[in-house]
């Protein structure tokens, strides 16, 4: 079985909050390969490329890193920081279309913020309470091209789509009239 490459992007997180995801991925055997910034040969040129550039925005730096690591899936450790996450998702769609994004969210996140992030191209979400989660199952599903969203969220998204489709239909009737 081939391993699925995963990279982590932290958005507005402190170091302590990064750990659970890293630990979780390391305990999922060979199925998931976590890509990190450390260069194996210690070459200076690689080290330099790993450095965050102050003259670039967060999104530009993150995209540069994702392009360098080229993971199949990027875990966006978002907490509640949605705007930067949305900007990154849109840039990711444009510049790394083959990389799928999975959000790791705070349980208290506003529902509208989460829908906004999904509308920007995230392929699903999991909450920060990851202990009971079979993470390899999530990552494998995303890699297969499936989405990972809760049943209740699925209904809300569908409601939005159906309402949107009706609005467009009405707008078309109006413009035709």
């Amino acid at each position: 079985m081939h391993s699925i490459t995963v990279a982590i992007v932290d958005i507005g997180q402190d170091q302590q909050r990064q750990m659970p995801i890293n630990d979780l991925l390391r305990h999922n055997g060979d199925q998931i390969e976590l890509l990190v910034d450390l260069s194996s040969d210690g070459a200076q040129s690689t080290e330099r490329r790993c450095t965050v550039r102050d003259d670039l925005s967060f999104v530009e730096n993150a995209i540069a890193r994702i392009r360098r690591l080229n993971p199949q899936i990027v875990l966006m450790n978002t907490g509640q920081t949605i705007q930067e996450c949305c900007d990154l998702l849109l840039a990711l769609q444009d510049q790394c279309p083959d990389t799928q994004a999975l959000l790791v969210i705070d349980e208290d996140i506003e529902e509208n913020d989460l829908i906004k992030a999904l509308a920007c191209g995230a392929r699903g979400f999991v909450t920060e309470n990851l202990e009971s989660l079979d993470f390899s199952k999530v990552v494998t599903a995303i890699d297969r091209g499936e989405a990972w969203v809760s049943r209740s969220m699925t209904a809300k998204l569908m409601h939005q789509i159906v309402a949107g489709a009706r609005d467009f239909a009405e707008a078309n009737v109006d413009s035709a009239g």
């Binding site: 829908i115 995230a122 569908m158 949107g164």
Partner: peptide, 29 residues
């Protein structure tokens, strides 16, 4: 039970379409 809770009875293989459609509808909006 699922429908009474306001949820959908939908195959997992279709949920990806929901997200793709959401992206499309939002872009259009």
């Amino acid at each position: 039970d699922v429908i009474s809770r306001g949820e959908l009875w939908i195959r997992r293989s279709l949920t990806n379409r929901i997200l793709s459609e959401l992206v499309k509808v939002t872009f259009e909006k």
